[in-house]
Each structure stands twice: as structure tokens, then as C-alpha cells.
Design a protein around this nucleic acid. Sequence first.
DNA 1: GCTACTCGTTCGAATAACGGGAACAGGTTT
DNA 2: AAACCTGTTCCCGTTATTCGAACGAGTAGC
Lengths: 255, 255
Amino acid sequence: MASDSRHRPVETVETAFDIVDVVKHTDGAGVTELAAELDLAKSTVHRHVKTLESRGILVREGDTYRISTWFLDYGIHVRNRHRLFDVAKPKVDELAAETDEKVWCVIEEHGMGVHIYGAEGRHSVKTHARIGQRTHLHQFAAGKAILAHLPEDRIESILDDYGLASQTERTITDREELQNNLETIREQGYAFNHEESVIGVHAVGAPIRNESGNAIGAISIAGPANRLRGDLLTDELPDLLLGATNEVEVNLAHS
Amino acid sequence: MASDSRHRPVETVETAFDIVDVVKHTDGAGVTELAAELDLAKSTVHRHVKTLESRGILVREGDTYRISTWFLDYGIHVRNRHRLFDVAKPKVDELAAETDEKVWCVIEEHGMGVHIYGAEGRHSVKTHARIGQRTHLHQFAAGKAILAHLPEDRIESILDDYGLASQTERTITDREELQNNLETIREQGYAFNHEESVIGVHAVGAPIRNESGNAIGAISIAGPANRLRGDLLTDELPDLLLGATNEVEVNLAHS
DNA sequence: GCTACTCGTTCGAATAACGGGAACAGGTTT
DNA sequence: AAACCTGTTCCCGTTATTCGAACGAGTAGC
């Protein structure tokens, strides 16, 4: 981290990815538009875009370039190769079938939570989460479950790096309050989310730990606040969840 | 296409993606390994890798770099933004539930077929296909259904570009034979795959066409050859499939 | 315990490449 | 028909990329 200031990035590569980013966020753009947006010469953008196209990273549709499914190929590859995915997927499916709610498998990467797999129950809410989505760890149940089970210094550095941005009015934005919450989570072994990421949505999340006890991911069950409350939320679902995560941990250790 | 020879790519960007490719295929690699593999100086690779890491494209685990879920994020974004996905997904799920076989939604991109969504039936075979996978159009039912419903000149240029590589001993590798097959597909409105991509697997595929009648994708039903045969394969499944694809086409037109 | 190998990292200097701007070709609008 | 838009091409100057060698650190060998 201290070497960050010393490290000078390859700017040509940065502009290439800047182009990809703009193309993604605009859902397709032309050379002129990209050049204007990124303050580059048209010829420069053109050369980059042609390079990316020849690699199959961008595809051309008339005069606009779009992100290609190259990313889907690589993305799914990443997911399938992740140690957790194979083991967790069947359990996530099971939980969704048993609870009829939305169940997510989340991993930690670079200090953020990444939703790598989600299973629908029959009544599952349309959460705003999407496969591949990155969310700040303090903003949701699975994330807090992960955060609580990381080494103390990593927790500090993550909170330092990203801060405590709010998602809803109920998101925990006070550092001390979060520390208390994490302590409770460690004691209980699971975390709750009371409308902290989406108003009207409650969730329970439990960590998946490796041999050294550090969380590498988590599983969460989410549903409407008026259905996920009382004993169901505080007892039944955590029980089910812990059963699943414990099993995943055991299977992980033997793989 | 003719300008391909004239176009000189941005080499720095190429090396960056070369690095990403090697990291993907080796499932994680270090600086020295990458430098040796790509015949570059260690310092060059180091700078690239640091740049990619700071962007969150690669993640570091000890001394090896891995592909990150950044790709999953972008990949799923691409899929979700595709016009076909929203409309086709529910139909694919329906077909899988009705037939109990593996059902795929495939789109055409850059002259290849990309599997963007697959639904499992209760008895579905473990096909080798994976979300994001790119396959030559002539090698499978959905692909041939697409190929048959493209403008004549595009068909020619795709076949010229990619040739007719074989996947199994039953893959169609003769151009004339393929043309005859495509003609039959156009007459019937759907395509069969008789162990042309995987031995022991049969499939039916039907195109999804836009307003001008050109295929933009296809849906296919695949299953074991000994179950998918006779009337089921030649009549029942095509009927079900065409019902679904027609509906998708109508919904597409009104979206 | 020391040595010898690996790994990632840093530095400076030379050259190759990237980026810019102006001019071109093809289409569509005014 | 002319004025605009688009993507595309060219060449030149300068910068930023690349290389190779040297460094620090950690690990395996004996």
C-alpha cells in the first residue's frame, strides 16, 4: 500500500479500460462520443477500439461499439473456478427451496462483497442485487458476517479504505456502532440486516470460514420485512443457515 | 475486414490482455511465470500486473495473480442488457420445466454462438456447455438454426472466416452438406443436432428472428440420444420449441 | 548456520510506440 | 448542392513503455 505512490500505472492500459468502462456505462458508444467523454483524440480512440474489437472484447453494431460476451465467458470462468462456488451452490439451491426466499452466496474480494450466485425461492423478493455485484461489506447481512470474521487489522484497513457509506437511512454509518454490531455477530455466529441495504427487506447472513477461522464468504437469506420477522427471522432461519454454512465449511476443508 | 491488414493494434493493450489471458488459463500465475510465458521483461509484466490490480481486474493472492470477479460484474451486465435475455429467460425456464431437459438460449456474436443462459430440467444431461461459452455455429443445433437464418453473404463470410472445424466425428465438415442442411432447416424452421457436438447428445434448436427475418439468437433443447429420438425429437419437441420462440419473437417486437 | 536459489521489486536510460491533428471517404440532413 | 455528421487514415514528434541489471527478501538445501 505504501508503494502505491511510487507505482506508476501503464497509462495506455488505463485508457483502454477507461474506454471499456465508458462503453459499458453508456450501453454502447461511438468513437466521437468516446473521444469527447475521455478527452482524447478521435484517432487514439479509434485505434484502441479497433484493437479491442479485434480481440473480441468490444463488438461493433453499426457505428456504436458495445461490450461483448467476452466478459461473460471470463466472468463465469472466474466464478466456476472459485473454491467456494462448487461447494456452496447446491446448499444455496437447497436453502432457497426450503425457505422459498432469495438466497445469495457472497465472497469477499478486495475488501468488498461480491454476489457470485443467487437462487430464487418461489416467493423471493426482487432484490436489487445482481450476480457479480460488488457491495460494501458493512451494508448487508452477508457482508457484515464476513467482516466480523476477518482479522482485526484487515477490518480496520477495509473500513479505512472504503468508509461507511450509507445505502438506506438504516445503514450503519457509525464506526463504533458497527464494531458493536460485529461483536454481536461474532457471538451469535450470524448477522442480521434490518432494511440496511433496501428498505422493506430483512436478511440473515452467516460466514463461511477457512481453516484459520477467517471468513472467505457468506450465505444470506433475504425477504420482505413483514414476512421475515419474529421467531422465523431470529431463530428458524439462522438455524437453517448455520446448518448449511457449517456443511459448506466441512466440504471445503475436504476438497 | 479488408482493413484488417492496414490496422495496427495498440501493442501495449495487447500485452495487457495477453497477460489477462495467461492468468486465466493458468488459473493464477506470478510475475516471473508470466514474463517467461509471454517473453517479456519481468519489470514490464510487473508494471502491467500492478496496473491491472489497482483497477481490480486482477487480485493478488500471495505471489500469484488471479482473474477477479470484475469480469463477472461486466459479463452479467452484458447479458442482462441484451435485448434477448429478458424476453427469452422465462421461456427457457418454462421449456426446461416442461421437457425436463437442458434448455439453452444462444445469441450470435462475431459469427459465433454464445450460450447466454441455460436452464436445467430434472433429468438434464451435463452438457459440456457453460454460460458464456462460444461455439462455432455449424457445430450445434442452436447455431445451425441461427446460421440458416442469416443473410446469404454473412453466412459465406462466417464460413470463410472460421471454416468447418469438427467437434465430433458427426460434425458437418463439408460445406455443401452444410448448405443442404441449412436449406432443410429454413424449410422446417428448426434444426437438429445428431451427436454433432457431443457424442450421445441430441438436440433441437429454433431461431429467434428480428423484424427483418434475420436470426439474432436461438433456443435449443438438448438431451441424451436414447431419450431424444423418434416422434419426441422430430415432432413434439420442435412443436414446443417453436411455440416458445414465436412467443419470444412477438415479445421482442413489442419491447 | 551459511549459501544459493527463488520470488517480486526498483531504477535509469534508449528506443519504439502511442497520441495528436489534419485531411479523407461515406452518409445523412438541411 | 453544400454543410454537417460519422468513422477512418496518415505521418510526425514526444512521451511513455520497455528492457536489463541490480536490489531485498524469503526459502530451500546441505
